[in-house]
Design a protein around this nucleic acid. Structure first.
Length: 258
DNA sequence: ATGTCGAGCAAAGCTCGA
């Protein structure tokens, strides 16, 4: 089974890019983030025509997450992250499909920091950790996939000099991510590239970041032990980032032997 | 400190978020 996460940065704006990649990569399950579409605006017909069932949680203007599957309809288990009833942002959807439990998550960016947005990021991280703990020991494979908006270590960025004040690199953000790993989750890309520099997953639009390969690794797939023992391969479809009207992220994927 | 991109609002450029 191949499962990918892809911050599409506008599912309607980049629908052609998404369909092209689905056609050539043929992932079985896809977690999308930053739909930037309401629930009604989600292009369900085009995605069905491409051979995928989908569940999604939209929002006006920002955020929005989805799970696509070509191996059976995803059965939604959650449409929001527990822990804050007042949080109306669409950043989490979770479903059972093809014998695995998968979450598509879009962790808050947190800039500018310090400030209320950074506080929200850290609070969201806490909620995620609490929920993740309840999922870790699930007998079936569990995959928490998405845009975590965290550069885990100095090895996960081309050069951190101009990013020192960014929320993605703050010690608090990194510690929160590490706490998740310490529960027993496996970072699939890091597992696949233990010694070499890992592939980047995001290149900002500014300052010719793509042309300079000035990338960051912020899209992650975390595996519970049942999923980790079935991990066969992992990677990034980086060429997708170089295309016309591309998202600023590239699809990041794993292959599981189920 | 800067930079790019796209959408909403409302009628063109500003604002926001990333």
């Amino acid at each position: 089974m191949r499962l990918a996460t892809f911050n599409i940065n506008g599912v309607n704006t980049r629908l052609a890019n998404l369909l092209e990649w689905l056609d050539e990569a043929e992932p079985d399950i896809v977690c999308l983030q930053e739909l930037k579409a309401t629930t009604e605006q989600f292009p369900v017909k085009a995605i069905r025509d491409a051979g995928y069932d989908a569940v999604w949680q939209g929002e006006h203007r920002w955020n929005g997450v989805a799970i696509l599957s070509r191996i059976g309809e995803p059965v939604v288990t959650r449409r929001r992250l527990p822990g804050d009833e007042a949080d109306g942002q669409s950043r989490y959807v979770e479903a059972a499909v093809g014998g695995v439990l998968v979450a598509s998550l879009y962790l808050p960016n947190g800039n500018p920091q310090p400030g209320p947005k950074f506080d929200y990021k850290l609070a969201w991280f806490d909620r995620l950790a609490r929920h993740a703990k309840t999922l870790l020991k699930t007998e079936a494979p569990v995959i928490l996939a998405g845009d975590y908006n965290v550069v885990p270590t100095e090895a996960d960025i081309y050069n951190s000099r101009s990013w020192k004040k960014d929320a993605l690199l703050q010690p608090e953000s990194r510690a929160a991510y590490q706490r998740l790993l310490d529960q027993g989750w496996t970072d699939a890309i890091r597992e696949r590239f233990p010694n070499d520099p890992p592939p980047w997953t995001f290149w900002q639009y500014f300052r010719q970041a793509w042309e300079r390969d000035a990338g960051l690794r912020i899209d992650h797939l975390l595996l519970n032990p049942a999923a980790a023992e079935r991990l066969r391969d992992a990677g990034v479809d980086r060429e997708v980032r170089g295309r016309e009207k591309a998202s600023d992220h590239a699809p990041t994927w794993i292959e599981l032997d189920l």
